[in-house]
Nucleic acid binder design. Structure first.
Length: 720
DNA sequence: TACTATTTAATTTTT
DNA sequence: TTAAATAGTA
């Protein structure tokens, strides 16, 4: 056996991981240290050298992209297609389990997956129907609560209201939501994981079958696992399974959606004797960039400890630019991008990273002015577009009449005279009889509804029944094609004026092509339609289609994780923006922001710019901000301050370098803690200030009127 | 039902 | 500021 291709070009640590004995192994892989390579080579090693059947391997990732890349690279390395090798996302694999064992999982065979948007709609309807205050029970909050519980593996019955009425309400909303899903055969993303876990937990034989089958578990981005994913892995590993997990505690940036770095420690407890390999040699960035990254992340207390190093060159210093305001910042960045491009570099090799999406706007304006092509990551993806979801809702209703989520979506789209009143009648019937909207519609149409409304409902019911009949036995793409026309959707969007309607029609036609190009996995015993619908839910498709022009890349630091660029700009590096205001109060939150900063810095291969603005317009108000504390965590000798080439509209007076400039509200003689009197609200204390000049606002806690935000120039506050 | 005015809130996002 | 959701009007 020639193992050269598998082992050559690996460093010692990588080789140690790849060739490790068949025991649990934890690989701590720093940014740019060849994480995917180790995973891929490990798989190849197990198959080719250890003689493990590809069938016995399970590889889990978080994104479809990562899964596809891993499969591709393993096949390239082994030079054979590895069928029967399970590589997929947690959700994809859980879905597979549930499709195979839908009976044990207590699901209808044609259960459908709902995305976050569908989930929110269901919750909105639920909250509305209960006639409770939807300010207090904001659907988004409820959604967050439900998903957080599911991520922890908790069902409503596991939850204790702790004597708290509000919590009790959340729990019963969770319960109500779950009933709606169960009745409609709907499974949300977290539910996929939770149910897959329960199926194994509650079926010893089934679990044993999978435990026997998968002797080796490979896990990517281990630091991002949430409780239920970790529990699932542990269950599957059992006593014999050999987990090989790869992660980086310093790149854990998804705590807010349930990810727990603590699983890295937990892993070592649950698998005593697990070895640890650290990959610290970096193949991506210059020494300067790595030193900066190391210095910043070193301010975090809860870490395993790791220091990236490189054999490569020191590289250029990190350039820090203090802009006057956000426009100046954008112009500076675009100027440098222009130079980069003019020097013959690929624009796609340059990325501008920011903390929040709203920051892209100013950058885009500047880029458009400079006629530099760019691409913004994120945003709506193909299967998330409204018109596509409409078409899918018709298809889902054909497949499963009880899918209330889809029913509500399209019952009056295109408009067919089923208005709010009719809908309300159906909803209350459905609630009273615990049945689906479909059944309720039938009952209400032949019962309480008046003539015109009843006819409209019957027309709709007949439409769906006819669609189902007419598409029976057709090819998938013929089904889709028939449905988008016969449903009236195409006509409906054609009437929509402007370019928007055209795009929608094009997208619908694109959906037909997607159906044509779709090849379901023959191993799964689902109808092609159900398979297509699941695919649409699990793989929302690409964000922007026309990615092929050479474009500057704009994205959040979160979405940049895993990517690398020769030239990187980290912009909006100001306290309050990054670290974000909402994270600074909590030490854990601040540490996560710092990890995000570490992720951002380590995206850069050669040149890193860091920019911040002294004044920034946020939510329509100008705010002063300090440079991000993360900037000062970078050793001064690595940094070169960039002076503006021309004096922009910068004030001439020298600014104090240290403490902030004019504190918000200062010119009005207002400061935090100041006691004030208001004509209407009475006496209070200033809690907060923002903005300046005519826009300055203060938050005042009034003794008798509660806490209010007031615009200083109107409020007529008397200082006391 | 469609259009317009008003109110409200404003990280990060994959599945 | 602005986008989205809601409420009100033709």
């Amino acid at each position: 056996m020639d193992v050269t291709p598998i082992l050559e070009a690996l460093n010692d640590a990588q080789r140690q991981a790849v060739t490790a004995p068949a025991e649990p192994l934890l690989v701590i892989a720093g940014a740019g240290s060849g994480k995917t390579r180790v995973l891929v080579h490990r798989a190849a090693w197990l198959i080719d050298v250890e003689g493990i059947s590809p069938q016995s391997l399970l590889a889990v990732t978080f994104t479809n992209k990562a899964a596809a890349e891993m499969r591709h690279r393993i096949e390239a390395l082994l030079d054979i297609p590895v069928n029967h090798l399970w590589i997929g996302t947690f959700h994809g694999l859980a879905h597979r389990i549930l499709r195979r064992h839908w009976r044990e999982a207590g699901l209808p065979q044609s259960f459908q997956i709902i995305d976050a948007d569908d989930q929110l709609r269901i919750i909105k309807r639920l909250v509305k129907g209960l006639e409770i205050d939807d300010d207090k029970w904001a659907p988004r909050q409820v959604q967050y609560f439900i998903n957080a519980q599911k991520d922890e593996g908790l069902r409503p019955q596991h939850l204790d209201d702790e004597g708290d009425a509000d919590r009790q309400q959340f729990i019963s909303l969770y319960q109500g939501y779950q009933e709606i899903c169960d009745r409609g055969g709907l499974v949300d993303f977290a539910e996929l994981l939770l149910r897959a876990h329960e199926v194994w937990r509650d079926n010893a034989e089934l679990l044993q079958h999978y435990q026997r089958r998968f002797s080796h578990l490979l896990v990517d981005e281990f630091q991002d696992t949430n409780a239920i994913q970790y529990a699932w892995l542990r269950l599957l590993a059992g006593k014999e399974g050999i987990p090989f997990v790869v992660g980086d505690d310093d790149q854990s940036i998804y705590r807010w959606r349930g990810a727990r770095v603590e699983h890295i420690n937990q892993f070592q407890k649950d698998f005593p004797g697990a070895s640890v390999v650290k990959l610290e040699q970096n193949y991506r960035s210059t020494a300067t960039i790595l030193d900066a990254a190391n210095a910043v992340i070193n301010n975090n207390t809860s870490r395993m400890g790791k220091k990236l190093w490189t054999e490569g060159a020191e590289g250029e210093p990190i350039r820090v630019y203090s802009a006057y305001n956000e426009r100046d910042e954008a112009d500076f960045i675009v100027g440098r991008l222009r130079d980069w491009s003019d020097q013959g570099n690929a624009r796609a090799d340059a990325a501008v990273l920011y903390r929040s999406n709203a920051q892209s706007r100013v950058l885009e304006e500047s880029l458009i002015n400079a006629r530099l092509p760019y691409r913004v990551y994120g945003g709506l993806r193909f299967f998330e577009r409204a018109e596509i979801k409409d078409a899918l809702a018709y298809l889902r209703l054909i497949s499963n009449r009880d899918d209330d989520s889809s029913f509500e979506r399209i019952v009056n789209r295109p408009t067919r005279g089923i208005g709010a009143r009719t809908l309300e009648a159906m909803r209350s019937y459905a609630r009273a009889n615990s049945c689906s909207m479909w059944r309720a519609a039938g009952a209400v149409a032949s019962g309480e509804l008046a003539g015109r409304a009843a006819t409209a409902v019957v027309v709709f019911l007949n439409l769906i029944t006819t669609l189902a009949k007419d598409t029976e036995g057709l090819d998938l793409q013929e089904q889709v094609d028939h449905v988008i026309h016969a449903s009236g959707l195409i006509e409906f969007f054609k009437k929509e004026k402007g370019e928007r309607g055209e795009t929608r029609v094009e997208n619908l036609e694109e959906l037909v092509s997607a159906a044509r190009g779709f090849s379901p996995d023959p191993a799964e015993e689902m109808s092609p339609l159900d398979a297509f619908l699941s695919h649409a839910a699990l793989e929302a498709g690409e964000g922007q289609a026309d990615a092929w022009e050479d474009c500057v890349q704009l994205m959040t630091m979160h979405s940049a994780k895993g990517l690398e660029f020769p030239l990187v700009f980290l912009c909006g590096m100001e306290d309050g923006l990054f670290p974000h205001q909402r994270s600074v109060a909590d030490p854990q939150g601040l540490e996560e922001e710092r990890r995000l900063c570490y992720v951002g810095i380590t995206r850069a291969k050669d040149i890193l710019y860091i920019t911040h603005a002294e004044q920034r317009r946020l939510h329509g108000m100008d705010n002063f901000a300090q440079a991000s504390r993360f900037i000062s965590e970078i050793p001064a000798e690595l940094v070169e301050e960039v002076r503006p080439r021309v004096q922009v509209s910068r004030p001439l007076s020298p600014r104090p370098r240290t403490a902030g400039h004019v504190a918000p509200g200062a010119e009005m003689g207002v400061r935090l803690g100041q006691r004030v009197r208001h004509g209407k609200f009475g006496d209070g204390v200033i809690l907060n200030c923002e903005g300046q000049g005519a826009h300055a606002r203060v938050e005042v806690n009034f003794e008798n009127a509660g806490t209010k935000w007031l615009v200083l120039s109107y409020a007529n506050l008397n200082l006391m």
